[in-house]
Amino acid sequence: MATGAPWGPVPSRCHLGRAAVQRVTLLPGPPGHQGMCPQESVYCENKCGARMMRRLLPQHALAECPKRTQPCAYCAKEFVFDTIQSSHLSVYIRVLPGDYDNLLEWPFSYRVTFSLLDQSDPSLSKPQHVTETFHPDPNWKNFQKPGASRSSLDESTLGFGYPKFISHEDIRKRNYVRDNAIFIRASVEIPRKILS
């Protein structure tokens, strides 16, 4: 190998100088280059099946890979991105332990209402909020008084809600999303005797 020779493919002509006859000589790269080359075509490390140049892997893993993980801001668990994608917006309520549990009446039996707020200008059209209401079943374990043994991460008490509250298609039909934000109101009807 010649000193100072460039690394990689080197085109050269035959000894007759004919342009049509060409061969490529591959020179070995620097030690350790193989397996680290940013131009090398590799498969995604998350096993999503995508193949790309190694230098594009970080961006793919961060924002494009359907097998990337997304941490939940509430429970700190990580979920695979393609398992949390769906065709609908879902809403849930879950009873968690708190400092004032001994002052409340159990089981939790108060009416719960979820509303997706229409952000259309009310002077142009009447807002069409999407609303669902339910009364908890007092026999269901998810609405019993949380005990010390029941942690906030206990998967046996996942709560109650609507996995198909509204379709993504219906969300786009009105101004439910405005400035890249949605507003969901969750209200609990509390009896007067607790308020007084």
Rank of each mutant, 00 (worst) to 15 (best):
N139D: 07
W140D: 12
A61T: 02
V24F: 05
P38R: 01
P11R: 12
C75P: 10
L96V: 03
C48S: 03
P28H: 08
L57C: 14
R150M: 04
A63P: 06
A76C: 12
S109G: 08
L104G: 00
E64D: 10
F134T: 05
Y74N: 07
T131Y: 03
P127M: 04
S41M: 15
F143H: 03
Y74A: 07
D99T: 11
L103N: 10
E64Q: 12
R55E: 13
T69N: 07
K77C: 15
H15N: 14
G29C: 11
N139Y: 05
R111T: 12
E132V: 05
V21Y: 08
Q70L: 15
T133F: 00
T133M: 08
H15A: 06
V112G: 09
Y92E: 01
S123E: 13
L56Y: 01
S115R: 09
M52Y: 12
M53C: 09
L26Y: 11
Q128R: 15
P28A: 07
T83K: 15
S115L: 02
H15K: 14
I84S: 01
G147P: 02
E45N: 14
P38C: 07
G32L: 10
H135V: 08
Y100L: 05
H60G: 08
Q70F: 06
L27Q: 14
S149M: 10
P30Y: 07
A63V: 01
G147L: 13
R23S: 15
A73L: 13
L104Q: 09
L96Q: 14
G147H: 04
G17T: 13
L56I: 02
G35Q: 09
S125G: 08
P138W: 03
A61D: 01
L124D: 11
V112P: 09
P138K: 13
L89E: 11
G17F: 06
Q22S: 14
S151F: 07
M53D: 08
S152H: 15
Y74C: 06
N46V: 00
C65T: 00
D99L: 14
P146A: 03
P146I: 12
F108M: 00
S149D: 15
P97G: 04
G29L: 13
N46P: 10
H33E: 13
Y74S: 04
C37Y: 11
R94H: 04
A61L: 13
F134D: 02
M36T: 14
R54M: 07
V112T: 12
Q119T: 12
S152W: 08
Y74K: 02
G49K: 09
P122D: 02
V21E: 14
V130E: 10
N46A: 09
T133I: 04
Q70W: 02
M53R: 14
A19Q: 11
I93M: 11
H15R: 06
E45F: 06
S151V: 08
D121M: 02
R150Q: 08
V112K: 14
A20H: 14
Q22H: 07
N46C: 06
P38D: 03
H129W: 01
K67C: 08
E45R: 15
R55G: 04
C44Y: 05
Q34F: 08
L153C: 15
N139A: 06
R94C: 05
R68E: 00
R13S: 12
Q34W: 01
V91D: 00
T25A: 06
P136H: 10
F134S: 03
F79H: 06
Y110H: 15
K67L: 15
P97S: 02
P107M: 05
